[in-house]
């Protein structure tokens, strides 16, 4: 399980770094927790498990958040003891909390390929449906000067990019290639 808030000892002390191309702020690991987002447009590249704790927190102050959710996760509003109940509770919560069937589909983890773990987050689904949040389920493929490019061909321009610690980009953020598609 990813803790909802990183413990103080685990918090990274590195300051905001700058990607060689991106002109805004690039936050990695747990740096997202120490940054103030007032009025900023933020992109979050993270797995659903991490996003469930990052998104509600950032949305308190950010002007807009674009979430590139890499893999969905089951969520319950309160802790439910392990077992069948947990999964049933998560399914029922998703059904009740998210009205749009397509978004619900995007948020449903795959039976065999996604993690079966259940996260506890009372505010994730509400944050996802906030008008300031945009859920992008296309894979992100490059960080460029002004933001993130995704496989749907759109450049999502933002002021700050947060890369989650378990994101597939945690090791190296996606870089644009020299020669775009031939």
């Amino acid at each position: 399980m990813t803790p909802a808030r990183p413990r103080a000892a685990e918090r990274s002390t590195t300051k905001t770094e700058r990607s060689q191309d991106f002109t805004g702020k690039l936050l990695r690991g747990t740096d997202w927790f120490e940054h103030y987002y007032s009025g900023e447009r933020v992109a979050v590249l993270a797995t659903g498990a991490e996003a469930s704790s990052i998104l509600p927190e950032i949305l308190h102050t950010a002007a807009a958040v674009t979430l590139f959710e890499e893999s969905p996760t089951w969520v319950t509003p309160i802790g439910i003891p392990t077992g069948v109940l947990q999964r049933l509770g998560a399914k029922a919560y998703l059904r009740l909390a998210v009205r749009d069937p397509w978004i619900r589909r995007q948020l449903t983890p795959h039976e065999s390929y996604d993690s079966p773990r259940v996260q506890v987050s009372p505010s994730y689904y509400a944050a996802l449906q906030d008008p300031r949040t945009r859920l992008v389920h296309w894979p992100a493929y490059a960080i460029v000067e002004k933001g993130v490019r995704a496989a749907d061909g759109v450049e999502y321009q933002v002021d700050t990019i947060v890369i989650g610690a378990t994101s597939r980009f945690a090791g190296s953020p996606p870089q644009p290639r020299r020669n775009p598609a031939s």
Partner: peptide, 17 residues
């Protein structure tokens, strides 16, 4: 599955283009 994810996005990209 991941390939299909990309293809899903690419078809949308074609429609957008």
């Amino acid at each position: 599955r991941e390939i299909y994810h990309y293809f899903h996005a690419e078809e949308q990209k074609h429609a957008n283009a």
